[in-house]
Nucleic acid binder design. Structure first.
Lengths: 204, 204
DNA sequence: CATTATGTTCTCAAAATGTTCTCATTCTGA
DNA sequence: TCAGAATGAGAACATTTTGAGAACATAATG
């Protein structure tokens, strides 16, 4: 009734389903499909949710017409820091989420001690890190063997390499992931760890 | 009772939980969830804390309604959608930002028509997409030659490949980025585009 | 036009959630 | 030590939310 009302759980689920359906099919779903999509059997109940979403101004309908739902405003309940994480995307059917893990949470990338670095060069290409990628680094001064680190050499040059101690820790190896390049070895005192790789992203 | 009263430990815990929950879910938690969140079993006890927080003016509730809690006092606002984007990280010195682009904004990844898919297999490895990576897909039904797409073949099988039209659009090539695998060619009617790759991320 | 599918409205319940209580137990400061 | 505060469990009840399905009206279809 009241346009300022909050949506109930099922009403939000319904809105979410309709948005996804329209995104994948370009037309709106029918009541039967909505019912199945949100896990119930009754068209009447599905219609009740449509009515609620209409009353709250999220959608409007061509009354009586088949597939007559239109979205009116963006869904404010969509969590801006997570994305649906999908397993299979089959036709028509509601999208199949990965069991036990249906939301991807990107806040892992946004911790207070994290920063991003744009990667230059191909030295880590065999680790799947390509020129132009952005890597997420956690500020740290120590690393474990095998970590990929941002290392500062001789207080001047910064590089992204795999980290490994050598000679009981007196030396440090910085190992590229590119068979055309050679690993480098430095006295431990010349190398300073700036941070450790915790994530990577790429934008197309 | 008294609005100037200090909060007890559990009341503070409850308030923290509610703030975090709302930040994560956009809607308020129900009593059962609050109880579990602060480590107790009784909804009644959880409600007692809600009552105390209401009396002290931190929250208000839509009496009776499910998920009817609203925060009243401002909670520290954190912008979690950007990260500092750094060029060089030199010792001691304040970190050197990339000129003209000093914040990485991940909101591109969170559009309402985007979703995430966990990648299985090595078919796109030469494009830097490895087994276990997560790719961000924008819902779309059309693609341009060269796009990497999620394609549904024969309404059953879903795959991530590079898209290319062939024979004036009567056929569609799906091209892996792996020299050990061969490209596949289908009649256009057998292939349905589910979305186009717009980003990729990996967590270490 | 006849038939089927779909949208709409309705009633009857069941399940989930919020609210209020009582009864204990633990903690804290005078 | 003792009284009061804080905490926890859970029963009992009221209200909200959810679900099924019948009945009817209208739209879509051939």
């Amino acid at each position: 009734m009241n346009a300022s009302q909050q949506l109930t759980d099922k009403q939000r689920l319904t809105l979410d389903f309709i948005e996804r359906y329209i995104a994948t099919h370009t037309v709106s779903p029918k009541l039967q499909e909505i019912a199945e999509g949100i896990g119930i059997r009754s068209r009447g109940v599905a219609h009740r949710y449509i009515q609620a979403l209409t009353d709250t101004g999220f959608i409007e309908t061509d009354s009586g017409k088949h597939r007559g739902i239109r979205l009116l405003k963006p869904n404010p309940y969509r969590d801006e820091s997570t994305l649906p994480l999908l397993g299979k995307i089959a036709a028509g059917k509601p999208i199949e989420a990965i069991p036990g893990e249906d939301q991807l949470d990107l806040r892992d990338f946004f911790g207070r001690n994290n920063f991003a670095v744009r990667v230059q060069g191909d030295s880590m290409i065999e680790a799947g890190i390509m020129d132009g990628d952005t890597v997420i680094i956690e500020f740290r001064e120590t690393a474990n063997d095998g970590d990929i680190v941002v290392a500062l050499i001789d207080e001047t040059e910064t590089t992204l390499k795999r980290f490994k101690r050598s000679h009981r820790g007196r030396y440090i190896k910085l190992i590229p992931a590119n068979k055309d390049m050679e690993e480098m070895i430095y006295e431990a005192s010349r190398v300073r760890i700036q941070g450790v790789l915790i994530g990577q992203l790429r934008k197309y």
